[in-house]
Computed example of a mutant assay.
Amino acid sequence: MLVLLPPSETKHPGGGGAPLDLSALGTPELNPLREQLVAAVVGLAADVRAARAALGLSPAQDGEIARNAALRCSPTMPAIERYTGVLYDALDVRSLTRAQRRRAAGRLAVGSALFGLLRADDAVPAYRLSAGSSLPGLPALRSLWKPVLTDVLAGVDDLVVDLRSGAYAELAPVPGAVTVQVLSERPDGTRAVVSHFNKAHKGRLARLLATTTAEPDSVVRLRALLRRAGLHVEHDGGTELTLVVPAAAVTR
């Protein structure tokens, strides 16, 4: 099973690993495009005003541009520890046992605008580039990534659970992947799509899938696994699951 996570705009700073080495990352067939994008991001950082415009940053965020300027020489840390935010707080990989962490390393991956696909333990520096960013002189990131990344993801033999947000899923859709919609249910039975706290519920779901000893190989078996874990999951056919949470649990 491969669980695809969205990245986050914010990153943990620092790290104890050696500087970025693209040859050490998984899926080496992505390296030519990775190198092109790294060069573009580093070069863009030399023009602070242009970088602000391209990356959608304010002057108060110039530190993000400085990170990009140092992208090739900054310390690294495992990708799954680099990203921050609601989803990653709920995933909480640093609290996993050694056995759980080994299992998670084999199952979790992050969709990245800069690196395309990162396995959990791929060592990366802090950087700033979003799926919607426009790098001067280059086509849209979706146009760049889709031809190469789609083939990589299509070649995954395991069940793919795609928890990426819309913009990152569009970089390279995965035919046949299981997707998850999160709905809140009020006491009167009415339902609504969960927006912000959708990330927290998907983070908890990712933690469960990363650490379970089960190996679901279909959407039906995945649904059964989640139901055994006490989750209210509905499946109306196809490859989408609906996770229904009480409205009172939406903010937790």
Rank of each mutant, 00 (worst) to 15 (best):
L222H: 08
D188W: 06
L135W: 03
L149A: 09
L149H: 11
A131Q: 03
G106K: 04
A154D: 14
R142K: 15
A167L: 14
A206C: 09
L226T: 07
Y168D: 00
L226F: 10
L141P: 01
A105N: 15
L225N: 12
G116D: 01
L159P: 00
G106S: 14
T212E: 10
A224Q: 13
V194W: 00
L129H: 05
L222N: 06
L163H: 00
S218D: 07
R103F: 10
R102Q: 14
A109L: 04
L159E: 02
E170K: 11
A210Q: 10
D157W: 05
V160C: 08
S218E: 06
L209D: 03
A224N: 05
D217L: 08
R186F: 10
L138D: 05
Y168R: 03
R107E: 07
L118Q: 03
A214Q: 12
A120M: 12
K199G: 02
S218I: 11
P136N: 05
F115E: 00
R221T: 15
H201T: 10
S130P: 04
Q181R: 15
R223S: 11
L138R: 12
V220T: 13
Y127I: 10
L149P: 02
R103L: 14
R191F: 09
L222C: 11
R103D: 07
L138F: 03
R142S: 14
R164Y: 11
W145I: 10
R119A: 13
S134T: 12
Y127W: 05
Y127T: 02
A105R: 14
S184A: 15
R204W: 12
G176N: 06
V152G: 07
A172H: 01
L163G: 01
R221M: 09
